[in-house]
Nucleic acid binder design. Structure first.
Lengths: 175, 175
DNA sequence: AGCAATGTAAAACGATCATTTTACATCGTC
DNA sequence: GACGATGTAAAATGATCGTTTTACATTGCT
């Protein structure tokens, strides 16, 4: 694993576990096993590091939304939450901690969310034989977002409930 | 407005707008219009201040969940989001920023969420003539949570979509 | 052999962090 | 008219913040 990869993945872990602002550069250098000089040569600044972590997170998350059915979408979410993290959406947490005041971070967050909504629209179109149903897509997005949030305090079974609700809404929309 | 009230409401505003960790005590004293000595006499510590802000937030939010129907529940949420804040759930944000490591804060968050779920169970029972339907209640909780999160980037119309989804699930459960 | 790249360790930067302290003013109450 | 409560302003605490710098070691390429 090269230096940059090691840095990004250590940073992602610490940011997810302890928050962005509360994670200092000293803890980052220690966790990534490198000097602060090397860290700054690769990351440039803390803001840039956060942005890169979010972009890498999106890359890693992408396969979980690049699916062809609502069932697969929620199965993938359940797997992610069981194995990766049940601490809420890291993108929204970054947005909240920075108050939306740092353009690069805000852009990364909004791009991720736009991509998520677009993909859900595609999935809904597949499930309904090509019909565009933007409100149904938004409802499934909300169930997806809500499951991620509720899983923090209700565990992975929140995803199962959301999954069933999405299936019911879809079935109703088809009839 | 007495000193303590002024402090709590200034703190709530700053925490919501800029995050908990990023909000320093100097900005708190300036916004609340008091010396740091007075602030510490009333709050004790930053952790205690955050805890009190969350408890006060819960008190102020309570009327919005103490309702008798799913319609009223989502109408109240829509009103809250339009007038108060569309920055996501402040409780979950506090939990995320502290990593769940500060017991007093974690307790306040979990108590709020437990109260929310209990209330939704009551509402579902009213709507279904007394039947206990814990999974339907969880689904409505997820729509509620998801609307709060999605409203950050999709605006208040997310609450309208969630409202319709909740009504549909309820209608289906009744038949 | 020599040079550019990439790394380390460690100190220093000024700013800001949460918190405490020192010294003083303004009250309403007994 | 003294007193306790409640406030202010301002400085000091030691720690930690993000970032830069100085000085040196280890590589791989030409």
């Amino acid at each position: 694993m090269d230096t940059k990869t090691k840095l990004i993945s250590a940073a992602e872990q610490l940011f997810d576990r302890h928050g962005f602002t509360a994670t200092g550069m000293d803890k980052l250098t220690k966790a990534a096993g490198m000097s602060s000089r090397t860290l700054y040569k690769h990351a440039g600044s803390k803001t840039a590091l956060i942005t890169e972590v979010l972009k890498e997170r999106h890359r890693r998350f992408q396969p979980h939304i690049e699916v062809g059915s609502v069932d697969a979408l929620f199965d993938a979410l359940e797997e992610w939450i069981r194995s990766e993290s049940a601490r809420g959406c890291l993108f929204l947490r970054a947005y909240g901690e920075t108050g939306g005041d740092i353009p690069a971070i805000t852009e990364a967050v909004l791009a991720h969310k736009a991509r998520l909504y677009d993909k859900i629209q595609d999935i809904v179109a597949i499930e309904t034989d090509g019909q565009a149903m933007p409100e149904l897509a938004e409802q499934i997005l909300i169930l997806y977002e809500g499951a991620t949030a509720a899983a923090i305090y209700r565990g992975p079974k929140a995803v199962v409930s959301a999954h069933k609700a999405a299936s019911a809404l879809l079935k109703q929309a088809r009839s």
